[in-house]
């Protein structure tokens, strides 16, 4: 059984590489029971989204200053 601490490592790595079937299974079993880790996963997805948007904001700028 995964601990929450181990689950956070897998959820971070899931942002970088596809997890193996075994890892996915372990993680899903843990998430089914753990609201804190489900929230952690949503937060990881949020960070990825925020970073993408952050870059688009920079790229969309004409003078390189932060957007108004």
């Amino acid at each position: 059984m995964l601990s929450c601490k181990e689950a956070t490592r897998l959820m971070s790595e899931a942002q970088d590489r596809p997890l193996s079937r075994g890892e996915k299974l372990l993680l899903e079993m843990h998430l089914a029971m753990c609201r804190g880790c489900r929230n952690f996963r949503t937060q990881m997805d949020f960070l990825r989204l925020a970073c993408r948007q952050f870059m688009r904001r920079w790229n969309g700028q004409d003078d390189g200053s932060p957007p108004p």
């Binding site: 880790c37 929230n39 949020f46």
Partner: peptide, 20 residues
């Protein structure tokens, strides 16, 4: 036991679009 302390448990951040 490597599970969240209740006060440190991640919570819901609401609608991402609203935040962003």
């Amino acid at each position: 036991n490597a599970h969240w302390r209740p006060e440190a448990r991640p919570f819901g951040w609401g609608n991402p679009e609203d935040t962003l």
